[in-house]
């Protein structure tokens, strides 16, 4: 997983529970002397361990933590990459361009082999159906990112998740209901 994602988690943890908490998490779950920088990749397991650590600290299920993380991650990334986030005029436009524009930009910067594939189909002007597929199975995080994006564009969003890789499906189906 890219360092920038760890960096997003750091941002959230320091904001929400403090600098010391982040330090403790690193002590407990990251290899000795680890620093996370954006352009480098780190083992996925470290991210999961850190997220699990956050869940333990807050006494919340991991899926909740991933959702919250995703949500704050969107704001963090949008701020960091204004050039890209400003390309999209609306939430819908952004969602439809995840694969073709956003992940393309990621590939330009890093050679990242594990990007999820996301197919978006507009059902009607209030509904978009997303198919999410990734060997990391971070669908809850994706949900969080989508909520973050909706917030960014001041839209009200509800996500249904009727089919999930965690229950054996080949890919997740996320149905986005917009106001």
């Amino acid at each position: 997983m890219r360092g920038v994602i760890f960096r997003g988690l750091e941002e959230l943890v320091v904001e929400a529970i403090g600098m010391q908490a982040w330090d403790e998490l690193l002590e407990a779950h990251a290899p000795e002397g680890r620093v996370y920088v954006s352009p480098t990749s780190y083992p996925d397991a470290e991210l999961f361990a850190l997220a699990q650590g956050v869940a333990d600290k807050l006494n919340k299920p991991l899926t909740d933590v991933l959702a919250i993380f995703g949500q704050s991650l969107f704001g963090f990334l949008a701020e960091k990459h204004k050039g890209i986030s400003s390309k999209f005029a609306s939430f819908e436009e952004l969602v439809l361009s995840i694969d073709s524009v956003i992940h393309m930009e990621v590939k330009k910067l890093y050679d990242e082999p594990n990007l999820p594939s996301i197919a978006a189909i507009v059902k009607d002007d209030k509904t978009i159906v997303l198919e999410y597929c990734s060997n990391r199975k971070l669908c809850f995080c994706a949900e969080g990112l989508l909520y973050g994006a909706a917030q960014f564009y001041s839209r009200k969003l509800k996500i249904e998740h009727p089919q999930c890789m965690h229950s054996g499906a080949k890919h997740c189906v996320l149905i986005l209901h917009l106001d």
């Binding site: 954006s38 352009p39 960091k80 910067l109």
Partner: peptide, 12 residues
């Protein structure tokens, strides 16, 4: 962060 974004600019 600033150094990283500089790096990203160059990479791009």
């Amino acid at each position: 962060d600033e150094v990283e974004s500089l790096l990203e600019e160059k990479t791009r």
